[in-house]
Design a binder for these strands. Structure first.
Lengths: 329, 329
DNA sequence: TTGTATGCGTTATCAC
DNA sequence: GTGATAACGCATACAA
């Protein structure tokens, strides 16, 4: 039931080159013969074998996307952006969940390389040196989304500045004790940068930094819930909490609801990411919107340009974030 | 910078067959020569070309997964299940978002077929006849998740029974007027089946069916919100609403919160799916848990069995759902 | 405009 | 235990 180009050639009474030509829409073939061939193709239900083709043409029209975990709220949207653009340019995408695990990242990278992907979209908190040197060695086009490293092409937002904006906004609203639930302290993208923005804003406003108000979170809902509990048990409680991601911020909101704390009157909460649920929660969460779909779409667009050897203006794209004011602040 | 088996052979001073043997861990090769070859491989940083290999061995260790939309709450979890098992058996997966669009489904199917995937995991509300005949014609192993059609292998839950259980539970709690926000009326999996369960429970309890209490929803948050509004504007309001999916049920909850309606005292709400957010929302949502991760994992496991020509007990797997009682009922 | 022949990087069959 | 060599299905340089 599976035919190849030879079968088509025989059926259409032409050579395989001619069949190949009509498949690849070469202009040179006579209309009549083209018709014959197309007829044969349809009658047999023939489909070209992309594997064989790839072997010859040395590209696979396939890219890989490496993300921490598709079942985490944040990533599906960027994957969607990648996919829509990939689809537009006739690429298929390999999905790889790395769980932020170095070893898994290496394994997937190898697998993608062996499967001859034309390029890779990478999301992860850090790029290990080992991975970096592999990327260079095998010379596989790769673009980073949401993180930045060395000379690799990337699309990101300015995290420090965004955090700064948030805290500044809170200060202007009159808050003097502002708590923060951070990402992992050593995480260069959601951890250190956002904390730095927080500190910058405080300093600029002449507020002093109080270590007690900073709690390192673990990104998940529960971790936000528990960090908030600690913050609210302080004698000198914060009147506002800036949380390094929405998932945790929703955990904070949940706790406030349970404890009958009025949001935003008694406690203002601001998150980061603008995940889908942040607007659906009650009260709806004020948050920093990262243009997730766009980050994916633009990342993929950059990749296609690299693949087509088109010149790119910058290989460091910085996208705009925006503070979305909703009910929690 | 890219080497092939020939380069390795030359460097190790053996034939390419020998290199191939060590790569594929054939037992027959002498330890010393094996060492030589491995050394050469490492020195060159050689990676076998999986495309060329596939052409020869006629499998790609690749499967495709077709889902409506990865950025919709429900699917990432099942994709995760698929991926984890796929990974275990050394398969990579092509991700395809179909948006429930027939044409896109066909396009992706063709693309996957051309790329010679070994099998396909399919999620969608219905299987079009055209798609079905293609599946048969090209004879590509495919398993359905969350839906069922003809003789195709599938993994599902008993939707009618689950809906029946929900409504029965509500009736036992004393509710007499129970509203329902359904899926699309013609959707065989979330639409007709769940509505049937609702009707069955009513009938069995001697309650009469009131058309006015049924509203067709559109699956999304907003659609639930608006359907609930209509339900609550009725003179003879329902005291409970059964919603065909969580996303919409959360919309209902949001409305209740805004309208200061006490949940569950004045209005009980029950959803379907047990998406991640349903437990995080306040009040937490009572819902029917579909074992999403398991559906993906088991679906993939069925697929691997088919691919290995192992016997499978049934090609129709029916998984257990469970009613998770939380704060909204 | 069409056909013949070669090779893409592997694996597998057969000798040796 | 190892090495030649013929496929796998296709695209393409070259010949006709």
């Amino acid at each position: 039931m599976k035919f190849n180009i030879k079968d088509v050639a025989k059926k259409a009474e032409v050579s395989i080159s001619t069949v190949s030509r009509v498949i690849n829409e070469s202009k040179v073939v006579r209309p009549e013969t083209q018709k014959k061939v197309i007829k044969a193709i349809e009658e047999l239900g023939y489909k070209p074998n992309a594997i064989a083709r790839s072997l010859k043409v040395k590209n696979t029209k396939t890219i890989g996307i490496m993300i921490p975990d598709i079942s985490n709220q944040f990533y599906p949207e960027v994957v969607r952006g990648v996919e829509d653009i990939a689809n537009m340019y006739n690429y298929n995408i390999f999905l790889c969940n790395t769980d932020l695990d170095d070893e898994k990242e290496m394994q997937y990278f190898d697998a993608l390389a062996e499967k001859q992907v034309d390029g890779i979209i990478f999301m992860g908190n850090i790029v290990s040196e080992e991975l970096y040197s592999k990327i260079k060695f095998y010379n596989i086009p790769l673009v980073l989304i949401g993180a930045d490293y060395e000379d690799l092409p990337s699309v990101t937002i300015n995290n420090t500045e965004a955090a700064y904006t948030v805290v500044k906004y809170l200060i202007e609203k009159g808050h003097k004790r502002i708590g923060m639930i951070t990402g992992k302290k050593h995480d260069p993208v959601t951890g250190v940068t956002r904390l730095k923005g927080y500190k910058d804003a405080l300093k600029e406003s002449g507020l002093l930094f109080d270590e007690e108000l900073i709690i390192e979170g673990g990104y998940r809902f529960k971790s936000g819930y528990e960090a908030a509990k600690r913050l609210l048990e302080l004698e000198n409680k914060p009147t506002a909490i800036f949380v390094a991601n929405d998932e945790m911020a929703l955990g904070v909101t949940r706790l406030a609801l349970e404890m009958n704390i009025k949001v935003p009157e008694d406690l203002a909460i601001i998150g980061f990411d603008n995940i889908d649920m942040s607007q659906k929660f009650y009260p709806a969460l004020t948050t920093v919107a990262q243009p997730m779909y766009e980050m994916g779409a633009i990342g993929m667009r950059v990749l296609t340009k690299i693949l087509k050897d088109e010149p790119i203006d910058t290989n460091k794209v910085l996208l705009n974030y925006s503070l979305i004011e909703r009910e929690s602040s």
